[in-house]
């Protein structure tokens, strides 16, 4: 008898994207519908949780219908339903969790709870198979972490930001430059047109730990711009962006490569919204080449760097093998985090 293909219907609604995907065998994207609320939250300069929750209710069944249609599958074909249950905005998470539970219940399918950050990492699975132990640099709107994976589905934080996340810093300095939310992509573009002339601080770069800090950089940037405003001096936006980005990338790349060498890691996954950053992609490739490192750096495709259902489906594929299922009482967990490694010293 022909073995049935494994099909997972995956939901993501942790922040301001409603996304539903159908994934085959954890490796093939049959559909990945993403409804983004950026045009709405742009009005407010950032995500307003109550507004985000309201939009999710408007889109969750629409996205499900579109995902099922685009994948050309029926509920009878499905193996399981998966959903991001944290971390994120609780009101947003609840919509995906509620819809996923209802569909799993109505069609008698197992329900797989997925950690959103595991999803970001597993977006890399669509590029190539992951090889363990691996190191992941997670850089997103809410996280900047170095995560060690001894095996599939096992995550330990070995380095973390002490204050702002990298994406958050991009969005905040972007605001000062008058760039609408989310600013990362535009700052990245401007950075490629300018030069690192301001020499902003590279926080903790030489410190003997694997943590990050971006609030000092953010303050230095804001002070520079305000000071120039006060004396009526006009600064180059391109040079400001280039200087900011150079500082971020210097710290991220220096510390990540150091950890990879120390742990003898062969594969580095860079994931999360900021993994879309061209400067970061170029620099990592350059360092690996210059230093002749035996390190395979994997970036998810651009579309899979931001929040999406496909990444949730890829992470769920691993959880399905481990039979990690949830019951009808699954709740959202807005502050869900990976555990810190036993050796982690803050």
């Amino acid at each position: 008898m022909e073995s049935k293909r494994e099909l997972i219907l995956a939901f993501e609604s942790s922040c301001d994207e409603t996304s539903v995907a159908v994934i085959e065998d954890g490796t093939k994207i049959l559909s990945n519908i993403i409804a983004t609320q950026i045009n709405s939250h742009k009005r407010f300069g950032g995500v307003v949780p109550e507004v985000a929750s309201r939009h999710h209710v408007e889109y969750v069944t629409r996205c499900t219908e579109d995902a099922m249609k685009a994948a050309n599958v029926t509920y009878d074909d499905l193996t399981a339903v998966a959903v991001t249950y944290g971390p994120g905005l609780v009101g947003s998470l609840l919509i995906g969790v509620t819809a996923a539970k209802t569909i799993a219940y109505a069609h008698h399918l197992p329900l797989i709870p997925v950690n959103h950050m595991a999803g970001h990492i597993y977006a890399a699975r669509y590029v190539k198979p992951l090889e363990y132990p691996l190191l992941a640099l997670l850089v997103s709107g809410g996280h900047t972490e170095l995560v060690y994976m001894k095996a599939a589905g096992e995550f330990e934080i070995i380095g973390d930001t002490r204050d702002d996340a990298a994406g958050e810093a991009y969005d905040k300095i972007g605001r000062v430059l008058g760039i609408p939310y989310p600013a990362g992509k535009e700052v990245d573009r401007l950075a490629h047109l300018g030069h690192d002339t301001f020499n902003f601080p590279r926080a903790m770069i030489h410190e003997d730990n694997d943590d990050f800090s971006f609030s000092g950089l953010k303050s230095a940037f804001i002070n520079t711009v305000h000071h120039a405003d006060q004396i009526g001096e006009k600064l180059s936006r391109e040079d400001l962006a280039a200087s900011f980005q150079a500082a971020v990338i210097d710290v991220l790349v220096t510390k990540t490569i150091r950890v990879a060498k120390r742990l003898g890691i062969k594969q580095l996954v860079v994931a999360g919204g900021v993994a879309a950053n061209q400067g970061l992609r170029e620099r990592l490739a350059q360092v690996v080449k210059d230093e002749h490192l035996d390190l395979d750096v994997v970036f998810p495709p651009l579309r899979l760097c931001g929040d999406n259902g496909a990444m949730v489906g890829a992470a769920a594929h691993i959880e399905l093998q481990k039979k990690h299922f949830a019951g009808l009482d699954l709740n959202a967990d807005p502050s869900l985090e990976f555990a810190y490694a036993a050796t982690y010293q803050p």
Partner: peptide, 11 residues
């Protein structure tokens, strides 16, 4: 509302 609309939609 999400529970009810999802039931109605999916069934």
């Amino acid at each position: 509302v999400t529970t009810a609309k999802t039931f109605a939609f999916t069934l």
